[in-house]
Design a protein around this nucleic acid. Structure first.
Ligand code: FES
Ligand code: FES
Lengths: 141, 141
DNA sequence: AATTTAAAAGACAAAAACATCTTTTAATCT
DNA sequence: AGATTAAAAGATGTTTTTGTCTTTTAAATT
């Protein structure tokens, strides 16, 4: 489903959403420690997310990454699109050139069901809402 | 979700189930042409499926690959397990070391919903049943 | 027995994904 | 201004996945 980069990206964004703000930034080192992922690799990913305006960052001492209030309003699908591209949810699970109700593959309708459950949380809810839900349920981020 | 190899494998097995039998085999060349996938790559995959007893094969002239009646009774999950390993359906969608209701990731419950839809067709039905359903709906294999 | 056919097997090559390391830039603090 | 800190940027390295090519083996046909 998601590439490793994308998994790291989603986890990083959710973590930043839960624990940072303009005045409470987090460095790559600290974030990498929390998520237990390779620091430099995560740095690359954050770089890209920052370039695309999905996360905010500041250089220098007291610098680091964080999610602004505006950043939080975006859906998680922006992260997925930024890293894995926009095709993840629209492409055929068996790799057929087109996925659709006309000319569907044998797994199409079941795959669609899967996708829709995920799309709800990825596309229809904001990052802020996802984190809120997760914190209510006491999930670790 | 599935690796490219696994996608090819699933499509190949379904095609073989629909169009071959002990007395009506199909060569890699013909199969690769039908599925529009690279011949030698497909050959490798079929080799592995054959080694694991998921598809049947015969060498020499009039040789080729086919699905025996016994082969057809297996679920598609055998193909998936043979190529991508058994973890595909049980591992966390965000790559956490364990996936479960205790310590679930923020996407866990939605991911589960997806998975279950797919597991129904992959694990609970035989290859023969999947193909039958597909042929009824006039899907291309 | 010789020839042909097609899978089995394995070596090899290219590309993508994953990961690390170093240098540069910019902000803060002294 | 100089030192320090941390992201930005980019070069480099490794591994996995994907794909191709060649040789070997075995069966069928002549
Ligand atoms: S056609 Fe395969 S998932 Fe839609
Ligand atoms: S814990 Fe992530 S999908 Fe189950």
């Amino acid at each position: 489903m998601f590439s490793k980069s994308c998994k790291y990206a989603i986890r990083a964004v959710l973590h930043l959403a839960a624990f940072t703000a303009e005045e409470r930034k987090l460095g790559v080192q600290a974030l990498a420690d929390s998520l237990e992922v390779p620091k430099h690799f995560l740095g690359k990913i954050l770089q890209e997310l920052s370039r695309q305006g999905i996360v905010s960052s500041a250089k220098g001492p007291t610098g680091g990454f964080f999610l602004s209030d505006a950043d939080r309003q975006a859906p998680l699908s922006r992260v997925v699109e930024a890293i894995d591209g926009p095709e993840v949810f629209s492409s055929c699970i068996l790799g057929l050139p087109v996925c659709g109700a006309d000319n569907p593959c044998p797994l199409h309708f079941q795959a669609l069901e899967y996708r829709e459950a995920l799309q709800e949380i990825i596309e229809d809810r904001s990052i802020a809402q996802v984190v809120e839900g997760a914190l209510e349920k006491d999930l670790k981020l």
